[in-house]
Design a binder for these strands. Structure first.
Lengths: 153, 153
DNA sequence: GTCGATGCAAAGAATTTGCAGGACC
DNA sequence: GGTCCTGCAAATTCTTTGCATCGAC
């Protein structure tokens, strides 16, 4: 759980130190929670984890920190489903990129990776007249548990 | 602009007639606007187009109609960027599926299609333990115009 | 005439902004 | 000691819900 999250945390704190005027405690705590949890959290979830750790932070600071991290390219906001937007970690150097699987019944969100798919996406991006910086693929359907259960369970 | 939008409109009205108790005028007008515009609209944009056509409809009715159409599998809500959700038309019978290109500078949204990419996505979906019903790929980056212009232009 | 469809207005959820006080260099 | 950071609260944006009325069957 702290595997590549730890890498990301260190990298993010470095970038932050290099681009920010003063190192406040709230922002640092937010980065640490994101790294420890591996990202894919909503703003509310970040605040909740911080509360659990005995380091409560105001929602405004959470949103401001997430916005700053997004501007620095350290996280990527991903609007999934109709709920609040989630923030994925961006790997330091073109590391693994994951995609999202959402269950329409139970709402569960699962990340997944697929090398062949990734390559096809890169090729498709290169064919476009845009300069593509980022992509996300979301699959919606039923997770194994929910597709086994009868409708309206 | 009324090409496959016309097909969709007819199909959607049929499905609606078959599954709805009473045929109100507002819902019908909303379906017609969606078909004529080719989808990819926000709720606000739907209401705006209806006003322009001299057939104003309350926002609540727009949202209720869009929710119903989504339940019937006629449209698909697509949360793009941080703005309001957009509603894509769902082709009657596994027709063309398009993906989205978003410019991070000007915010413009462009749909695109790519057969090879589509095939790779289908294969990847089949490899997953989920029953995949739908997918969307979003590319973010800079459109040709914005990538030509200097930063902060 | 009944019951669903519609629209207004109020409520609700998610996010942003304004401002006063506290923390860092 | 000045300036950025933080957090509360109010404002904004997007969406849903309650309720009285209108219209289709």
């Amino acid at each position: 759980m702290a595997g590549d999250g730890g890498d990301w945390t260190r990298h993010a704190l470095d970038v932050l130190d290099a681009s920010v005027q003063r190192a406040g405690g709230a922002r640092r705590a937010i980065v640490e929670v994101l790294g420890a949890e591996g990202g894919c959290l909503t703003a509310d979830e970040v605040a909740e984890r911080l509360r659990e750790r005995g380091r409560p932070v105001g929602m405004a600071s959470v949103y401001r920190a997430l916005t700053l991290l997004a501007e620095l390219g350290l996280v990527q906001p991903v609007p999934i489903g109709q709920g609040p937007v989630r923030y994925d970690l961006v790997a330091p150097s073109g590391g693994h990129h994951h995609h999202h699987l959402v269950c329409d019944r139970c709402g569960r969100l699962a990340p997944f990776m697929d090398g062949e798919l990734e390559a096809a996406i890169e090729r498709a991006g290169a064919r476009l007249p845009y300069r593509v910086d980022w992509h996300d693929l979301t699959f919606r359907g039923l997770c194994p548990t929910c597709s086994r259960a009868p409708r309206r369970g």
